[in-house]
Each structure stands twice: as C-alpha cells, then as structure tokens.
Design a protein around this nucleic acid. Sequence first.
RNA 1: UGGGAGGUCGUCUAACGGUAGGACGGCGGACUCUGGAUCCGCUGGUGGAGGUUCGAGUCCUCCCCUCCCAGCCA
Length: 384
Amino acid sequence: MVYTPGVHKKPYNKSSMIKQIQLEQDSGKSLHDIELKQSLVDLNRAGAPLIEIVFEPDLEDGEEAAALVKELVLIVQRLGVCSGRMEEGALRVDANVSIRREGDPLSTRTEIKNIGSVRGVASAVRYEIDRQQSVLENGGNIINETRMWDAAAKVTVPMRDKEVVQDYRYMPEPNLPPLRVNLTTREDTQDIISVPLISDRIPELPAVSRAKLIENHDLRPEIAIQLVNEPALFDFFNNLMNKKRNPTKVANLLLNDLLTVLNRRKIDVNNCTISVEQLDELTDMVLQKKINLDICRSVLEEIIGNRKSPFAIVDEKGWSLVTDSKEITEQCKRVFDDNPKLVKQYRDGKVKVLRALLGILSKTSDNKLDMSVASKIMEELLRK
RNA sequence: UGGGAGGUCGUCUAACGGUAGGACGGCGGACUCUGGAUCCGCUGGUGGAGGUUCGAGUCCUCCCCUCCCAGCCA
C-alpha cells in the first residue's frame, strides 16, 4: 500500500512481481565517503545468511519503491527475521531505474547503490528519474552504470571504476542447493518445499492485517496503515475490539490520545506499561460519554506505570462529564457575568470571541463540561 | 545517516487546546513642515498533506526544510 501524506491524496495498492530470490552469504557492506575519497568495506556481517530478492520493473516512481521497501521492513519485522533497519545494514536496497515513453521499451537502466534509508529510496529514485529524463531531453544517452546516492547532497553520482565493487561474482555454495518451491499444494516432498504450508505457519503478514482492519472494522486505510505500523497499538486495538465498539473511535483513542501521553513522557509505544484492562475501562468511559477527551488524557497520565483502575480514578477525582443542560446554562451565565466586555464584543459582531468565552467556561469548570453541548447552549444564550 | 534542537508577518518575538498579538521594517498620513526626530493609521504570518476535537500555531501520523553534534585518524 502506497501512501505518503502530502504526496498522495489517498493510499493505493500496487504490486511488484518477484523475479528471483537468491540465498547467499553476506559478503560485507561497503561504506563510501565522497569527501575523503575513500571506500571501506565492513566485514562484520561477512558470512551471515542473506536473501536477495529481485523485483520486476513494475513500480513507477520513488514513492512506490519506498513503499515496497517499507513493506519488506514490516514483513521481516513481523516474521522476526531481523530488525529491518537499513542503517544497520540489516536490510539493504539497490534501485534500478530506467524510463520510457508510454508504449516504448524501457531505456538503459542505471543502478543506484548506497541508499541508507526508506526515504532515501524515494529521494534517490526520484532524483534519478529526473536526471535521466533531462539527459534524454538534452539529446544525451543514458549509459549502463552504477551510481551512488549522496544523501546529504541529494544527488546520485557515478561511481568511479575503483569504487565499483568487483567481487560481485556468485560463488556457488555447495551447502545451498537450489531451492525448489511448490506454490500450490500443501505437500512437501524431498526436493520441493510447499509454500502454502509455510504460509500457514508464519504470522499474519502486514498486508493481511491491514485488509482485515479495513474489511472487518470498516477502518479508513490511513488508520489501518498507522495501526499496523505500530505493533503495540495493533495488539491493543485487537484486544479492545473483543467487545463490540466503534472501531474508528477506538483506533483514534490509541493513535491520538494514548500516543500524546506517551510522547510527552518520551515512552516508546512498545514499552508501554498500560494494561489492556486499564484501556478497556478507559475506552468504555470515553465511548459512553462518561468523560471527555481532556479528562481521558488526564486519566492516561494517572495510570501510566501503575495498575490503577480508570473507573476508580474518575470516581475519586470527580471527573465525570457534566451533560446536564441546566447546570451548563448556569455556568454560561456565570461566565457572561464575569466577562461583560467579551459578551459586548460578541454582540457587536465579533463572533470569534465565542471561542474565548468557551475557553473560560471550560477552564473555570475543571474541564468537566461536555463542551459540544456547552458550545451550543452558549451560542444560543448569546443570541438572545 | 544516527543523536539533539528548531520551522509563527520581510526580520525578531509572544499566545495552560479557546479572539494569532507586539516590536522593527515597509506603505500612508499628521505634526504649519524637507526631521536620519516624534505621533497616528495601514500592511502582513502559523513549512506541507491528512487526522483527532465543539474548537488546532499548539495534540497524532507522515513528508519537507534549517541548525548543532557524531561519522575520518583506530
């Protein structure tokens, strides 16, 4: 699923076919420093198992390429294969770029190396597409070459001959015989591995999780993406949805209010100590309009790092939502009496001060009022 | 790239989630007048896209950009 807010209006799905998968041993990572004109080879991972996946040229821009890489990262994380962090070299990407006019065959491709992040994939590919286009428009030719992505300068530069790693020949490894796979049946034979059997055993893939969220809970794709990107929140969500609840509201509670509090405390979501039971009580109160979202965040602050019951806290602190219109009306009148100048401004046509009045109302009543009700009441009172 | 800090009128700087304000500049005017002085008025802004909310500069996600530190010597 491809979605970069600010670039794409809506998420969309895109597929790229796998052309080939190679099992290898890691040879080492090369590090290039352009300013110092030297390249180093990091052999720390030499000999580590490595899978190389080659995709068909199905993707059309840098964002799609980055989305594919992001998806791979999510998959290897979900499967527990590795951290998927590109800067650790746990996952590495080279991008091949070629362009063509509609209907024409693909032009010569270039290969981009030294891409160090998911966003780097998007930037590097975008740059290379633009570069090739401008070369061709100026009557030049694209040569088949390997270029390096310079993340700081945001350009690709040709690798000098010396820099091109020459040891990239495949030495057949006798302990790694060709892997024959069977894509259709659940039957392993001596030489042929059944892919469906493996699919049965591995955790649900991110794409499936998203599809389920969208279909079973009617969530918007943007929300599904966010939930699946944060495993801890995804788990919370699934647990909370064991009761029948409004899925979007539950997701928003997690993605907005929980994250607000965790960010403020600089706590990583995956180290979140709040229990499902606590969230369960809290969610009930929010959805049943027993408390508003301001109070919800206060409760979150209270229960972080302990086992306190949200019910008990709200009870103890008297934080229950006030929805009674008589009481709200009283409070509004009190605010009017205390702020005659603002009221006059409003009646003189400066409607914006309604916000100021609402702010005062909210603050001077301990944030307990149901402000959606209060704003209606106050506006009516002012019009009289 | 990683870690840290940032992004509000042209510039600098405010706004517990509640009327985006001030200063400088610029423009216009006044002061009976060529003043590089003073006063008044006007101008003009929340980096981008989504989202949460009765209400977002402020909260959430992603993106973009800037600055600092680190990457070399091992």
